[in-house]
Design a protein around this nucleic acid. Structure first.
Ligand SMILES: NC(=O)c1ccc[n+]([C@@H]2O[C@H](COP(=O)([O-])OP(=O)(O)OC[C@H]3O[C@@H](n4cnc5c(N)ncnc54)[C@H](O)[C@@H]3O)[C@@H](O)[C@H]2O)c1
Ligand SMILES: NC(=O)c1ccc[n+]([C@@H]2O[C@H](COP(=O)([O-])OP(=O)(O)OC[C@H]3O[C@@H](n4cnc5c(N)ncnc54)[C@H](O)[C@@H]3O)[C@@H](O)[C@H]2O)c1
Lengths: 207, 207
DNA sequence: TCTCAATAGAGTTCACATTCACAAAGTATT
DNA sequence: AATACTTTGTGAATGTGAACTCTATTGAGA
């Protein structure tokens, strides 16, 4: 039996739909059909309709979906209708790139703190964020930060996760190429860039 | 009907298995059981056995799998048994982080060229790679580079992909939050960091 | 040599996801 | 008002993958 009523694969697609809808909304478009949306995002129209039907969005036959209404619904389902403060751990090459990225805000994220162990990094200020020593991780709960991004060297990933869990973090985006052990109530999503790259040659025609 | 005989989900897991096996191999371990491997990588033992059975790897009952043999087989299936030269397009925050990453080599990748449009970046040297002007993309075919990483600003992603296809690129790892249109024979894998982050709150218990 | 524990590999079942087709419901046109 | 057209929403069919079971095989130790 599934705990969440909406299929995981649908949840995976919702942020993609949301991204497209936000862009259309900026262009002051009011409605869109599943077909047009499919063209823009590179998915099937019936997949879009099926996904929406799971959570009872009602479009209008002959017209399509109201973009603003749809954005609101998807944000609500994904719990993106409130701002989420996030912490970055590991201000190395990848970590600093993430810290510099301005567009997490469209989904309602605010990277509000950054941590490292390297004394050369600690105290540096990036985009109004002062990099702190990892010993400060324990202050996260007080600061109402319950989401973290791990970008430390792989051999420190597990211990970082342990510290984050202790600090009350509920969700982790992990960039290290490691399986991270956490209590069941904590959700980890891992992005392993190298393994994704490693899938590519399999699908490439022989040169 | 599927074109490739091995399931996509299996292919997705193979690089993860490979990563674990390479690490064990360095520690001079000879054999490993599906159970122990499952513990290390955080997957099910029967999933591992089923995946291996698809391509006829034969382990030894009572002993497990021979690590060196298994590495060789997985590399062959993923076509990682030869070195793949890759090009990076977009030497910004993310691009430079990728260029600096030393561990793509374990899968047999060699980032052999980098491109940008910004005159301030062009000519800069990073890890023996001199950043070139994008007009040089046309030289990729001659240089036997058939794999590229897109890390340009999102609004330039499609035109970059078009240029890459024209230059004979067969596989693209795309970091821009965009659907990229390419001919069928070209494979695109997109890593959209923000949409992955956006899935996290849905799975987090209410704080 | 026999027995037992460990473990692979194949088969089965179940759960989930995608695709398709079409009726129902709306809009636009005449 | 009637007709033609567009687009949604969903039930059914199909496809895919995960979970689990069972049996055969192997290695090691009595
Ligand atoms: N850069 C890439 O393209 C890339 C690709 C694939 C995977 N990764 C993974 O992402 C992670 C980060 O990569 P990177 O390239 O930024 O590495 P990096 O070495 O540039 O940065 C790591 C940073 O983490 C800090 N750090 C180390 N231990 C720490 C600890 N215990 N607590 C807090 N900070 C700590 C270091 O001081 C450093 O600043 C690594 O796990 C790497 O394997 C990176
Ligand atoms: N940095 C992140 O954490 C992050 C997160 C999610 C998505 N992304 C995506 O990754 C991509 C790169 O992000 P970034 O943070 O490195 O951006 P960035 O602005 O730091 O870098 C973009 C680089 O691309 C170069 N460029 C622009 N147009 C080009 C062209 N036509 N050809 C070649 N080079 C060109 C620019 O000169 C710049 O150096 C973007 O599409 C972004 O949306 C980044």
């Amino acid at each position: 039996m599934r705990y969440h009523k909406i299929a995981d694969e649908t949840i995976r697609r919702l942020p993609i739909y949301l991204r497209g809808l936000l862009s259309l909304s900026e262009q002051n478009q009011a409605n869109i059909s599943s077909k047009d949306m499919a063209d823009i995002l590179g998915v099937n129209p019936w997949q879009i309709r099926k996904d929406f039907s799971y959570f009872g969005v009602f479009g209008t036959a002959g017209v399509g979906y109201n973009i603003k209404k749809l954005i609101k619904q998807i944000k609500k389902i994904l719990k993106l209708d409130v701002v989420h403060k996030a912490a970055l751990v590991g201000a190395g090459n990848l970590g600093l790139a993430i810290l510099a990225y301005p567009d997490f805000g469209i989904y309602g994220f605010d990277i509000a703190a950054a941590f490292d162990t390297n004394p050369k990094k600690i105290g540096r200020k990036v985009k109004n964020i002062t990099i702190e020593d990892v010993s400060n991780l324990s202050t996260l709960k007080k600061r109402k930060i319950n989401l973290a991004i791990i970008a430390v060297s792989w051999d420190k990933a597990q211990q970082t996760a342990d510290a984050l869990v202790k600090a009350g973090i509920k969700g982790i985006l992990n960039f290290s190429p490691c399986y991270i052990r956490v209590p069941k109530k904590v959700k980890v999503i891992t992005i392993d860039i190298a393994t994704d790259l490693a899938r590519l040659p399999y699908y490439m025609p022989a040169s």
